[in-house]
Design a protein around this nucleic acid. Structure first.
Length: 572
RNA sequence: UGGGGCGUCGACAAGCGGCAAGUCAGCAGAUUUUGGAUCUGCCAUCCCCAGGUUCGAAUCCUGGCGCCCCAGCCA
């Protein structure tokens, strides 16, 4: 018995929605079909919260042999644009999902939806209301007081039919009339207080043009669209929980195929915001450089930043699906990218903040090529050659004149290894006589340690990355930190705007980083690990041959930074 | 004083009456030509609180407390 039970549970992360789907299938409901849908409104770019929904809906379909539709919820012409439609399709595909031939638009159903509305009028379940916006608000009542019925509520079916037809024909001004469902003005659920089904908007729609001047509301359009497509499980976020009675009401009143709605908690991620309204504001106010700014939590932003689709899918799997509201730590997302990038990224050496090193006992004018492993995690990745010469650059962070005990990189009199090259020892520190700033290090190398091993078996405590001064390529590197300094930027104090919590240091541009010459032909979008620094990708927008621009996707875990107490604010 | 939800480790999250999974983070150690990766061990006598039922409760009952959502002709 126990074992049988276990056999029934398919592999994969469990959650309550998956359990419901599995049970429905097992019970043979919906003729054994499973159909979900991802229904974005094309009024902005998709963000990581949408990725959670995409992974859930497409993932469930994939796992249980069902299908998932892509349907644009385009019922409000004033907010929607083709640019958003295009970006959404690109993002869903990039995440690795396929809606095949099931690309739908709510606007495809406008005629059918209109006929459904006529049917509800005929059944005496809908009426044309002439209340103004303000009047309707008054009649609606409040959270604690019931509403009052509209004086237009009892118009005859004939009059309603006539007026609704004339609304469609464009005889009335915007906002002058609505079509409303006749439900219950005293309901504790405000959604049931004679909700608006249609409003007049004489506006061009991105797909239907000027064919319509009345547009259906979300509540009226959504369930019926699900029904028309044959959706079995309509999965949305918890803020729609009290819309479910209305969702059910329309379907029952119409007597059509009745999908079931289930709600899960939307994703919140620490140190960022996931609301289209807020993201749009950041874009419009120029706080970021567009929807695909690498600091944005949008799919387009993460893509440009160098994240992989697999890392985002893994993240969505790990965070789970539940109903309680939560804020997922950004650290988990970072773990997911590192995990994926670690096994696949070619290693390369780059110096962000160059400190010149002269190897005094290395012959002037001499140069050699050293073998370097491309990816220690992947033997098939092979090796490459990196040039070595008398003058090098190392990371300025890798040298300290008067180091604390825990610092085991280069210091006066200390010997370290230059990765894949030689052991070098710091003999002299040269400073700018004016400023006292360290300008250059004089070191000696041990020719016997070529490749990085000492024949006498002596050890060094650190291995540094480096580039040869004469062959390194000067590049721009963009370092990103969290968009918001605050762990939870949605939690603003009185009189404070969420933009006040932006991290002023979210972007640092390094104009004169030096990267090893093998990167000369690196293609836009290609990803690398800069050894000891992090994962970087060639920017797809600004990088050009001869002037490479890299984005830092994520740093490597950094024990030394941790020892120095560098961290970010908690979620609170 | 309405309606709908939710409260399990620092952050997520399983669990559905039989004695607290897993992941991230953290800590300790091994290993290491990336202070990376990898490996090992540790990390909730306790599940918002208080009563009750039961041999037995995070799970059932009762009563509290706390948090979130809803008064767009937005989705």
């Amino acid at each position: 018995m126990e074992e049988q039970k276990n056999e029934q549970v398919p592999a994969g992360p469990n959650n309550f929605i998956r359990t419901i789907v599995a049970e429905d299938l097992k019970a043979g409901r919906n003729e054994g079909r499973l159909m979900t849908r991802f229904p974005p409104e094309p009024n902005g770019y998709l963000h990581i919260g949408h990725a959670k929904s995409i992974c859930l809906n497409f993932g469930l379909a994939q796992e249980f042999g069902g299908v998932c539709n892509l349907r644009f919820d385009d019922t409000n012409p004033t907010k929607e644009e083709q640019e958003y439609v295009d970006s959404i399709m690109e993002d869903v595909r990039w995440l690795g999902f396929d809606w095949e031939d099931r690309l739908y638009y709510a606007s495809d159903y406008f005629e059918q939806l209109y006929e459904f509305a006529v049917l509800l009028i005929k059944k005496g379940l809908a009426f044309v209301c002439d209340l103004t916006f303000e009047e309707m608000r008054e009649y609606r009542g409040t959270l604690t007081e019931p509403g009052r019925e509209s004086p237009y509520r009892n118009r005859s079916v004939e009059e309603n039919l006539d007026l609704f037809a004339r609304m469609r024909a464009g005889e009335f001004a915007d906002g002058s009339r609505t079509l409303r469902a006749k439900i219950d003005m005293s309901s504790g659920n405000i959604n049931m207080r004679d909700p608006v089904m249609y409003r007049i908007k004489k506006e061009s729609h991105h797909r239907t043009g000027d064919a319509w001047c009345i547009y259906p509301m979300y509540d009226y359009a959504h369930g019926q669209s699900d029904s028309i497509e044959g959706v079995t499980h309509s999965i949305c976020t918890t803020e729609y929980e009290d819309h479910r009675p209305l969702y059910d009401w329309y379907l029952d009143a119409l007597g059509i195929c009745h999908p079931r709605q289930y709600e899960f908690a939307r994703l919140n991620l620490s140190h960022t915001v996931l609301s289209k309204r807020k993201l749009l504001k950041l874009v419009q106010e120029g706080r970021v450089r567009g929807w695909n700014d690498p600091r944005m939590p949008t799919i387009a932003g993460f893509r440009r930043r160098g994240f992989t689709p697999a890392s985002i899918r893994n993240f969505c799997e790990r965070i789970g699906v539940a109903k309680r509201e939560s804020i997922v730590d950004l650290g988990l997302l970072e773990f997911c990218v590192r995990e994926d990038l670690n096994r696949a990224s070619p290693r390369v050496m780059a110096v962000l903040r160059p400190l010149k090193v002269v190897i005094t006992n290395y012959p002037e004018g001499q140069a050699e090529q050293l073998d370097a492993v491309n990816n220690p995690e992947d033997p098939d990745a092979g090796t490459r050659q990196v040039p070595f010469s008398r003058e090098l650059y190392i990371e300025s962070d890798d040298f300290m004149e008067d180091p604390p005990k825990q610092f085991f990189r280069l210091a006066p009199g200390r010997e370290v290894r230059l990765r894949y090259a030689y052991f070098v020892k710091c003999e002299e520190v040269i400073k700018n006589p004016e400023t006292g700033v360290i300008a250059e290090l004089r070191c000696t190398y041990d020719p016997a340690t070529r490749g990085g091993n000492a024949p006498d078996g002596r050890k060094v405590k650190a291995t540094l990355h480096w580039v040869a001064a004469d062959t390194a390529i000067q590049s721009e590197v963009r370092l990103y930190d969290t968009l918001f300094a605050a762990g939870n930027p949605n939690d603003t104090a009185e009189g404070q705007d969420f933009t006040d919590l932006l991290n002023p240091k979210s972007l640092e541009i390094i104009a004169d980083a030096r990267v090893e010459p093998s990167l000369a032909e690196a293609a836009p979008g290609s990803r690398f690990q800069f050894e000891r620094l992090g994962y970087f990708c060639v920017d797809t927008v600004d990088s050009v041959p001869g002037r490479l621009v890299f984005n830092r996707t994520v740093t490597l875990k950094d024990e030394w930074a941790k020892l120095q107490g560098k961290g970010r604010e908690k979620t609170g």
